[in-house]
Design a protein around this nucleic acid. Structure first.
Lengths: 328, 328
DNA sequence: TTGAAAGCGCTAACAG
DNA sequence: CTGTTAGCGCTTTCAA
């Protein structure tokens, strides 16, 4: 920058101002400086800028599983939304490990990130203290509020109700669930929601019909198998997400169990492959792109100085395909 | 850091040295400093460190499509490999747009990134000048060498040969390809490789049997449809990657074309969903996790001072499933 | 409309 | 084994 200033015969302050536009610069001066910048191929050192301003232009996105297309799409969407403001996204895959989650939060403060967008998986509220102490805004994407952070959360009641309606109309009575791990953040709110809604349909969802595991294909297979040993055998299985549901389908095929003939299966998220498997997976769609957009908006507002907590609800939608009743 | 120094009654240099371990510190002093660090909840400001050392701890991973599970997995793998060295990965999705690709390279120099790992899609060699001028090491993941960068590249000859063998044995004679766009970096080397290998099988792959488009599901459908209008109709179709192959399968179903009965279909990469579709997609597997590992190794060596160009070949593997002949 | 200069927090000579 | 100190490249206040 000093080089540019010298070449243009101005002070480095002026160069800084033509770049940032934070103070008017005479037309002529500006042109001279811009020419010098081009001639020298100068580009600002953003780390010096960050040191000076105390804030970088990087936002961390912390997710439990980047190989889940839902999160990949969330990442793509968030990146696209923030890009126009000159903000960058650093994607952090924690593999659902609490220590990794905490490590990334620490990292965010060390790097003086502009903000973090996180889908907590095993974190607890006090793990967020490092962030708030450092004054780094966080927006949480989760089913339940989390500390006093901004929140993007699904509005899934209607969708789950629609799912239960279809399941019930298909004559299913023994509903079960392959839920997330017991120590997951919030204790798997999807289970609680399903349970309370099922009650309205006159169906209980007792603990013995809930099986728990990671959000992986393998865990889905294992969980489904355990469910299939219960008598009377469940005839409808809700899954924590689509990855888990795919695992359940693997196992059903292996066991010679017909879906949806013998057992109805309902996923969650509508990850890209949900419509690829056969039969196509009936699922509760939670639009990753919209979640990314909402998170970006919340974060930007926060960066602009808003100080009150906000929540954005993103509507989930029941997508009826072929795993509850024979369909498309 | 000055605070910690004061609290511990030492100089800030000493604090720096206990953190970095770059110079021995007396056992007692170290303990006192560590206590002060813990008490004050201090954590180093890595942006100041980066400014001072001239290099950040962030590596950019630039890919054309993060929603392609192949790249998502590459990202996860790279992140995992670099993490132990305290390096971080910033994922950049360019959506196959050259301007975006260039923008991210510029960004990498502004942010003084430690390095970049990139799968170029429309970039040309001279776009890399910004990086080399800034002295930022790049490792390229591509089918062909690219400038004088380190390279991770598939060794796919044997796999493609195996594919051609199976296709030929299945009695197919009219091979076609849905290739990438004409302006793609390297002009789609996968096409050239297939073409030269097909010749060894006595099969030509004339231009009229090659259709081009983006690496998307939609383009795969469109390309496949165009291919199906050619007479004599192709009876085996190779696709630029699995996403494209899925699009082809969509269209085949729509058109009532049986796969593999009427047309054999071969994908590329073995993205996670290749084994999910029915029939399961026969494909040329290119292991994303290994690519990530190789790229990490190359980058680390480069950071350690190696100055000669290196290439790592990652073996591709033919995975026979159900889209060439009836199979699993 | 522009310039001078302080200082962000750290690292790494250099000196003791 | 430890301390002093210059300076990385930028932004921004204060002064002109």
């Amino acid at each position: 920058m000093a080089d540019v200033a010298q070449a243009a015969g101005v002070s480095s302050a002026t160069v800084s101002y033509v770049i940032s536009g934070k103070r008017p610069v005479a037309e002529h001066t500006r042109r001279v400086v811009e020419k010098a910048i081009a001639d020298l191929g100068f580009s600002v050192n953003t780390v010096a800028r960050s040191l000076r301003t105390g804030r970088s232009s990087i936002v961390a996105l912390v997710v439990p599983d980047l190989s889940n297309p839902f999160f990949a799409q969330l990442a793509a969407s968030l990146q696209e939304e923030l890009r126009v403001l000159g903000l960058h996204v650093m994607v952090c895959d924690t593999k659902a490990d609490r220590e990794e989650e905490r490590a990334f939060l620490r990292e965010a403060v060390q790097q003086r990130f502009a903000g973090v967008v996180i889908t907590p998986f095993r974190l607890v509220a006090k793990d967020f203290l490092v962030l708030s102490e450092a004054g780094i805004p966080a927006v949480v994407s989760a089913d339940l509020p989390f500390g006093d952070n901004d929140l993007v959360t699904p509005d899934a009641r209607a969708a789950i109700r629609a799912a239960l309606t279809e399941v019930t109309e298909a004559g299913r009575r023994h509903i079960a669930m392959v839920a997330g791990p017991r120590d997951a953040t919030g204790g798997d709110p999807r289970l609680n929601l399903l349970r309370s809604l099922a009650a309205q349909f006159g169906t209980a969802l007792p603990g013995r019909l809930v099986v728990r595991g990671e959000h992986t294909r393998e865990a889905g297979a294992v969980g489904f198998e355990r469910l299939m040993r219960i008598r009377p055998r469940p005839d409808a299985v809700f899954c924590a997400n689509d990855v888990v549901a795919i695992g359940a389908m693997d196992k059903a095929e292996e066991l010679g169990i017909d879906i949806p003939g013998d057992v109805a299966l309902i996923g969650h998220d509508d990850a890209s492959f949900a419509s690829l498997v056969r039969p196509r997976l009936t699922t509760v769609r939670y639009p990753a792109a919209d979640v990314g957009k909402a998170a970006a908006r919340l974060l930007i507002e926060r960066l602009d100085g808003r100080s009150v907590r906000r929540t954005v609800h993103v509507k989930a939608e029941f997508i009826s395909r072929g795993t509850v009743r024979t369909g498309p």
